[in-house]
Amino acid sequence: MICDKVQNLLSPYLDGELAPRERAEVDAHLAACPECAGLAARMRAAVAAFAAFPDVDPSPALRRRLLAIPERSRRFRLDLDFLRRPVLQPFLAVAAGLLMLVSVYFASPGSFQRSINREFHRGIGSIEKIYVRAGSLTDRIGDLAVTAYDSAKAVNPIGRAENRY
């Protein structure tokens, strides 16, 4: 048996939980391998030492602190009982919704502001485009007016009539 496999079996070996054949194989390996035998001896020493660890006494002050807890806990609960009144439920639901919105804002203030800036600049861009289109439209209207005026002037039936007579 290789050392890794034996070392993984040492704990059940110490607990006496191995099948007889497996136990015999571990015994044979430990007899031939000083390193694994040393580990087994130290594991046995660790188990024995832990079993002799004494209980430690807490301080008397801790007992006093613990005895004071139920009273404090009860007082804390009474203080919050009014929150359970049904009439407050709709207000608490609205408050929870608002808190969620605020928390979303504070969780990502950068992206929120960036999205506002983006929308603002997009709006400004749209207004500029409309303004430019309106400008070109007035130009076209102006051109159209000049053309119409020139055409009218060229045709000018009144002027021709005046010239004829």
């Binding site: 040492l10 704990s11 059940p12 580990l39 130290r42 594991m43 020493a45 660790a46 188990v47």
Partner: peptide, 16 residues
């Protein structure tokens, strides 16, 4: 059992 086995082995290695 697996946790105890790993813990015991690690502590035995510390002692070694």
């Amino acid at each position: 059992k697996s946790r105890i086995s790993r813990g015991r082995l690690q502590l035995a290695k510390i002692l070694s």
